[in-house]
Structure formats: structure tokens, C-alpha cells
Design a protein around this nucleic acid. Structure first.
Lengths: 212, 212, 212, 212
DNA sequence: CATGAATGAGGTTTCATTCAT
DNA sequence: TATGAATGAAACCTCATTCAT
């Protein structure tokens, strides 16, 4: 009847996914430290030693979660925002895919961003992923700027990209906290904020601090 | 004889500040869970029972840190962005004050945002503070919009404000991770991103998703 | 076709020897408690349930090791020191065989003496084997004494034999820790110590404590 | 009434000795691995965290036992065998002190020799102590030899000393296993074995292997 | 006021051992 | 026969928290 044999003695690959599902859920609810391996094992419907046998230490388990969720997210975005599209089109599709991911995997998002950021051992992992995102956004901006015959310093570029990514993450948090909100609509809103600001930038408008 | 009683038996208020200083430092370095009351007490140069006597439980201690740092930040911002100034001036002064605070109290910032966000018991505290910020920003935007004779829905307003706050926090993180960066310059950059986007909004420009 | 069935499905006896080899190696390296059945099974190139099916519990496995190595040692000694030889000849041949065994099976020696001695459940097994050795040595001494027309108490005999066995074991440890040392030469040295002392004893020389 | 305050809240130094007493006892009965910190704590009449607070890790605790017992033993021997006495007198007094120590602290002896030898992490500690003993004995022999105008190679000297120490340890084990035996008498027996053999050595007697 | 002494509770990790295929 | 999957039990260690001085 079912594709999965039946009840117990599942093959390793299946059990690993079950464990990761449970781990993502528990880490997301409780945070890394407060989560207990007991609860994760129980939630996965399996005994603790299996978790250690398959996924290793608590830290390694968390990293495995990070990787799975991070990869999912990155693939969702990369699959949507083909590099040969015009910049606004790429941005829009990327944002739509991103918010779609967050809407679909709220727990995963929470693990990735809310938990990993606070815990020192994983800050590096996260920073790397975030850096890839920032780089992609910065690349898009740079591409569009050059098309307009304009240019800004590398640091300025990075900072603007950082701000856009931060704004996006912030809306993702908002989305994760509003289960009824529509991911697509949230993407549209972010696109408004981002593109309008970026478009100004493209046309060379700048703001300067007043002289006190 | 002297105004500060030299050695021990400090007045309660002073002791409490010493403890909070130590707590903020340790929480910021280690995170809430990984921080130990032992280390905090030792760092404060005081015995553990004193910490309990003065500031209570570990959770209560963390909340006290949150309050002190949050209040400092809010006061810095509120003191700078007087409500009777024009919107752009308020925004600029607020941002400058904010990044100034982050630059000056990196540990405090880390406690407030990087640690508190991940730990369930404090998410509420933090959300409340953040909500006040969002509200202030939304108020500024609304004020400016009405001055232009325009209006947008409350949710839209909230979301845009959320995005701006998120972008700002993101740059604050960036600033906290780049000890040599200049807070004032970072504020200018954020102002560029924010104001240019907002100005578009004010003038009625909008982006609409393409019809697939 | 071939005498050794090439690959798997080895006859039980062969498998058991493989397992014992692996077990002796791992017990000797790690000690009884620190050794894990996992490592032993892996080292034997076989799955854990097989080990249990063939050799039983971890304790039983250790006892099996003890027996194999102990028997090997005893046979080496007994085979060399034929009971019809004169005492000094028997002693010399026994020592030579003993140190030869230790030199050839350092792991086995380590299991037998260094590990088994410390672990309560096996102290008995070991004591029994040692008792047999002591008995043999005591027998030799007694025989020689009677040939000289002399006699000492049973306890004195046991204690002297104990001392000789202890000295021998000590040199065995020394040999096990000096892989380049020559077993034969070590045997000669021990023979010097033992025989010279024993010869004195045979001739009735004794030392008495001074009166304080 | 009593010098120890009363019941609980003992000063650190006292509690540490209680813990070491318990640890020596339990380690000696069960062996390092089989001993549990729970049992040690319970036997010391205290909770586990105190043990960790005062003496550290299980390994560190064992090392502390090793040190205390080793120091006691060495001091007993050194205090008895003054270096300015004649060799036979020194040997006799050293042996008497040694067997006295073993008789008085059977548990300590078991920890020092029976347990430590088998456990890799402590083999070094033990080897060092034993090396000091061997060195002392070798020094005594060398001194006596030179007084007789004779000399042997350094390796031979070491090996003979090793054998004597081994024989002594073996009798110590025997003593530890025979609670009713008299330490002084055991020392006399060992002195007989040792001194008679050594005396032969001093006078130049040697045994040579027969040519097969 | 101030602290050294003390602990209950709980977490991670490992291991010998056994099913079910 | 042979093994991957699975677990109960227990060990070490740490920490927030509180007495008793």
C-alpha cells in the first residue's frame, strides 16, 4: 500500500529526514540551548542513541539542520532568479521565492535566522550564507548601475545590499509571526520598498547630511 | 570622607550597576544560556548570593539588562528626534543617535538584539520595544504622507516601517561587526537608502508585480 | 576449491580466532572498560551480532582472550621445562620460553597482566594462573632444597616463589616496553638474579633483621 | 568537644581529605572505569557537585589520589632509608617502611599499582614514580658494588634493580591479599631474597647460559 | 551585609546488547 | 548465516539556586 515499508526498522535515509524534521521543529521552538536531545528524539519517534548514531553531536545536528534549510532556501531563490533576466525581474522573482520559502518553512526560517544568529558556534555558518545573499544582491545592483553608466564604491554597494537584505529578513520575521499573511503580497511590498529606493540610487539621487 | 566609600559596602545602586555591566558583558559574549551566573558574579567582583539578592533570578537579571540597554537606546533616540522637527530631520537625527548608541555600546546592542531575539522568554520584551520603534517610524511616514495629501493602508504603513527598521538593524549588526567603521557615516548611508525610498513613496510611485 | 574458502562464510573456528585476535589487540590497547565491542567487531571485519553469537558477552569475550593467551603461555613454558631435568636447567629453559612468549605476543601479555590485574571480575582467573606458576617454581625450589637435605616452611617457600615470579613479571613488563630488547638476554639476566639468590638459599644462608 | 565543628559545612581542606579517602577506597575496589563518581560522592557523604568543585574531573581526581598515596609512600621510604647508612641497612629499612606502608594503606597501594598500571592515561604518572624507586635501588647497588671494587653496565644495573622492585611489588600484592600477614615478616623475607642475591652479585658470581 | 559550602535536577553522550530482516 | 536498526541504562559533568555562618 504505502511506499514506506510499514512501521519500524526504516531505512537510514528516511529516519535521518524524520530526525531533521523533528530537530528543526524543536530548535525553532526552544532555541539551541534550551532544546533537549530527549525532546528531539521523542518528537522524531525514536530513541536518543539513534540520533547520535546518525547525525552526531547536538552541535553537528544543528549544523545539519542549518545546512538542509539553508540549501533549500538558496535553491528556491537561485532556481527562481535566473541570472540572464533583467535586474528588476530577478529581484522580484528572488523575493517571491524567498518569501514563499519562509511562508512554507517557518520553522526552518526560525532555526536559520533567529537561533543561529545568537549562538556563537554557528554565527560563522550563518554569516557565510548571508554573505552569499548580500553578494548576489550587490551584484544585481552593480549590474544595473553600470547599465546606467554609474558607479559607487564597493563599501557603499555592500552597505546598501546589506540594508536591503536586512529589510527583507525583517519582513520575513514579520511574515513568520503573522501566519495568515500572504507571502506573495509581502514580496510585493518588499519589492516596492527595495526597487523604489534602488531606482533612485540608479538615477544618481543622493541624500547628504545637513551641516550642523 | 570621600564621596565614593573607597572600597566595599558600596551603596546599592552602584553595586547594581556594576552587576549589570558584568551581566551585559557576559551575556553578550556567551549568549543567555551559555552565560553562567558564576562568571557574571566573578566578573562583577562579587559573590553569587549578592547577585541573587540584588537582581534576582537569571531570567530577571537578563530582563534587567534588557531594560537598561533598551531604555538607554530609546532615550538616545527620543532625545535626538524631537517630534516638532520636519520628518526628514527627525529621521536623520534619530538614525544618527541610534548608530551612535550602537557604536558606543556594542555589548548592549548584542544583548538586546542578537541574544534576546533567539530566546523565547524574552522575545516578547524585545518585540514590544521593536514595536515602539516601528510605531515611531510609521508615525513619521504617516505624517509626511498626509502632508503630501496621500494615504496608504495601515498594514502597508506598518510593513514599510518594519522594512526600514529591519534595514537599520541590519546595518547596526554590520557596524557591530566592523569596529573601525564610523557610526555617523553608517547613519548617512542608511539615510540614503531610507529616505530615497520613502521619498518615492511619498510622491506616489509604486511598483506592481508583472502579470505572469 | 581452495583450502581456505576465499571470502566469507569462513568456518566457525577461523572466525573465532579472527575475533580473538582483534579482541586481544583492542583490549591490550585500550583496556577492558575503554575497549568497545564496536571497535572489536570492526577490527575483526565482522558485525557485532556475530561477535555475540560466537563468543558471547564482553566479559566472556575477555575471559576467552585470557584463556587463549594464558594457555599459550603455559604451554610454551611447560613444553620447555621438562620435569625430569635438573632444577637449574628447568628454570633456565622455563625463563627462556617465558620471555620468548612475552617478546612474541606483547599484546597478549598486556591483556593478561596489565589489564586483567586491575579488573575485579578477572582477578580470580589471573590469580589462578599465577598460582600455577608460583606452584611450579615452588616445586622446583623444594625439589632442589630436599636434594640438599634442607627444608623450609611452606609459607617461606611460597613467598620466595612469589618474589621470583614477581621479579620475572617485572622484567616482562620491562621487555614489553622496550621493543628492541632481546628476550633471550633478558632471560639470562633474570636467571642471574634468580639463581644466585636461590643458590644461597639452597646452601642455607639467611639474613636476619638487626635488633633495634 | 570535638575539634571538627560538628556536622556539616566543613572547611574545604577537611572535605577534600574525606573525598580523597572515599575515592581511594572506591577506585581500589572497582577500578578506575568501573568506579562511579556517584559512589565516590556517596561514600564521602557529600553530593557529586562538591567533588567536581574541589577535585575536578574524574581523571583529575584519580591523579590526586595517585599523588597523595604516592607521596605518602615515598615519604615513608625516604624517611626510613637515610642515605648515609650502609647499603644493607638502607635496603632493610626501606623495605620495612615500604611493607609497613602497604600494610597500613592497602587501598592506597591497590590504587597506586593495580589500577594505575592498567589505565593508559596514568601509566606515565606511575612509571615515573616507579622509575624513582628503581633509581634509588640501582643507586644502592651501584654504591655497594663500587665499594667492592666491582662494576657492571648501566643496563644490567637497571635490570637487576627492576627485578628487585618487581619482586618487592609482588610481595606487596601478596601482602595486600593476605590481611593477616605481618608486614615486618614479609619485609624480612624480601630482604632475604634480595640481599642474598645481591650479595652474590657483589662478589662477582655470575650465571651463564649453557651452550645448546 | 557578604560569602563559602552545598545540592537537586537535568543535559549530553556512550555502550553493551538485542530484534527483525 | 549475517547485519543494519534500535534501545535501556547509566556515566560524567554543569548550573541555577540556597543555606548557614
Amino acid at each position: 500500500m504505502s511506499t514506506v515499508p510499514a512501521f519500524k526498522r526504516l531505512p537510514r535515509a528516511v529516519r535521518e529526514q524524520q530526525m531533521l524534521d523533528a530537530a528543526v521543529k524543536v530548535f525553532s521552538r526552544r532555541g539551541f540551548h534550551a532544546a533537549s536531545m530527549d525532546e528531539i528524539a521523542e518528537d522524531a519517534g525514536i530513541s536518543k542513541p539513534m540520533v547520535y548514531a546518525y547525525l552526531g553531536t547536538k552541535e553537528e545536528l544543528f549544523v545539519a539542520c542549518l545546512h538542509r534549510e539553508g540549501t533549500r532556501m538558496m535553491q528556491a531563490i537561485a532556481g527562481a532568479a535566473a541570472p540572464d533576466l533583467p535586474a528588476d525581474e530577478r529581484l522580484w522573482r528572488g523575493l517571491r521565492a524567498f518569501f514563499g520559502f519562509v511562508g512554507a518553512y517557518r520553522d526552518g526560517w526560525a532555526v536559520l535566522y533567529r537561533q543561529a544568529r545568537g549562538e556563537q558556534p554557528f554565527a560563522g555558518e550563518l554569516a557565510a550564507m548571508r554573505a552569499r545573499l548580500v553578494e548576489v544582491v550587490a551584484g544585481m545592483l552593480d549590474h544595473a548601475l553600470r547599465a546606467e553608466g554609474r558607479e559607487i564604491t564597493a563599501v557603499d554597494l555592500e552597505v546598501v545590499a546589506y540594508a536591503l537584505v536586512g529589510a527583507t529578513e525583517s519582513l520575513a520575521d514579520w511574515l513568520a509571526d503573522h501566519p495568515d499573511a500572504d507571502p506573495e503580497k509581502t514580496a510585493t511590498r518588499m519589492m516596492n520598498v527595495a526597487w523604489l529606493g534602488a531606482a533612485q540610487l540608479l538615477h544618481g539621487a543622493t541624500w547628504r547630511p545637513p551641516v550642523d
